[in-house]
C-alpha cells in the first residue's frame, strides 16, 4: 500500500488520513521551546543571563576598562552553567518519562536527540555574544567615567576561540547527559571532572601527561587565548573524542535500543 494514495479501510469505511514525516527544523523548534516553557527552564535561562552580565560588570568596575579581563570573567559562570543546560536538555525526557510521548510522536529517536542538541549549542554562542556585549559596554562606560584609556584587547580570533570553548562545554554536557541519561549523575561527572584532573595532574610526570591529553579544560585553553599549536590541536582532538564524541555516540546507540517505559 503506497502512502500517497488514500486507502479505504477493510470494511470500506472511513478513508485513512495521510501523515507527513516531521521535518527536522520543526523538531528543533519544538525542542527549543521546551527549554523555556517551564518555570525551571526559565529560571536557568535567567540565572545564566544574570550571572553572565553581573560577573562582567562587577569585574569591569573593579579592575578597570580592560575588555578581555571583563569578558573572561563570564567564562566562570558559563563554564559551570552551560554544561548543566546541556545535561538537563537531554535528560529531561527520561526524568519526566515524557519520552513515551515524544518518541511516539517521532519514532526516529536519533533525529529527536539531534534536534535537542542544537538549541543549547546555539545558546552557548548567544551567551558568548551577550558576554561580549556586556564587556564592551562596561569597558567603554568605566573608561569614560574614570577618564582612563580603555584596553581593547579582544581580538576576533580570541573571541572566536573563547566562544568555541563555550560551545565545547555545552557539547560535553550534552554528551554526558546522553550517555548517562540521568541528570544528577551527569552533573556530578561534569563538575567533578576539573577537580579530578587537578589531582591527576599532580601525580608525577605520568599523571601530568594524562591530564594534559584528556582534561578538556586544559586542552581547550589555547583555543581561548588564540595560541593554538599543532601539538595543542592534537591534545584538543583527543580530549574532545574522549569527552564528547565517544559518549555522544554511545548515548545515541543506547537511546535507540532503549525500552521506553
Amino acid at each position: 500500500m503506497s502512502d500517497h494514495v488514500v486507502p479505504v479501510t477493510e470494511d470500506g469505511g472511513a478513508p485513512v488520513p495521510m501523515g507527513e514525516p516531521t521535518p527536522f527544523r520543526r523538531l528543533v523548534a519544538v525542542e527549543a521551546r521546551k527549554l523555556v516553557d517551564t518555570r525551571s527552564g526559565l529560571i536557568l535561562t535567567a540565572v545564566l543571563v544574570g550571572l553572565t552580565v553581573a560577573s562582567v560588570v562587577a569585574r569591569g568596575v573593579v579592575v578597570g576598562p580592560r575588555a578581555l579581563t571583563a569578558l573572561g570573567t563570564a567564562g566562570i559562570a558559563l563554564g559551570t552553567l552551560l554544561p548543566v543546560l546541556g545535561i538537563l536538555t537531554v535528560t529531561a525526557e527520561w526524568s519526566h518519562r515524557t519520552a513515551l510521548t515524544t518518541f511516539a510522536l517521532e519514532p526516529r529517536r536519533v533525529r529527536v536527540l539531534a534536534a535537542k542538541c542544537l538549541p543549547p549549542l546555539i545558546a552557548a554562542v548567544a551567551a558568548s555574544l551577550l558576554a561580549l556585549l556586556a564587556a564592551v559596554l562596561v569597558t567603554a562606560v568605566v573608561a569614560e567615567v574614570r577618564h582612563v584609556p580603555a584596553t581593547w584587547d579582544v581580538s576576533p580570533l580570541v573571541l572566536l576561540g573563547w566562544t568555541g570553548v563555550n560551545v565545547l562545554v555545552v557539547a560535553e554536557g550534552l554528551a554526558l547527559g546522553m550517555l548517562l541519561m540521568n541528570a544528577p549523575a551527569a552533573i556530578v561527572v561534569c563538575l567533578a571532572g576539573p577537580l579530578m584532573w587537578g589531582v591527576v595532574a599532580r601525580l608525577g610526570a605520568a599523571g601530568e601527561a594524562v591530564a594534559g591529553w584528556l582534561d578538556l579544560n586544559t586542552t581547550a585553553a589555547p583555543l581561548a587565548s588564540a595560541e593554538m599549536t599543532g601539538g595543542d590541536l592534537a591534545r584538543l582532538v583527543v580530549s574532545v573524542a574522549f569527552w564528547i564524541a565517544a559518549p555522544m555516540a554511545a548515548g545515541l546507540a543506547r537511546a535507540v535500543r532503549r525500552e521506553v517505559t
Binding site: D3, P7, M18, G19, H96, R97, T98, L100, A104
Partner: peptide
C-alpha cells in the same frame, strides 16, 4: 498498523493516536 511497523509509517502520529501513561507529562508544563 496499516500493514506496517509504526515507525515506518510517514508521520505515524497523524494516523495512530496513542496514550500510554497519564503521569508521563512534564509536571511543570
Amino acid at each position: 498498523v496499516f500493514g506496517r511497523a509504526y515507525a515506518e509509517l510517514d508521520g505515524p502520529a497523524h494516523r495512530v493516536g496513542t496514550m500510554f501513561d497519564p503521569n508521563a507529562y512534564h509536571p511543570g508544563r
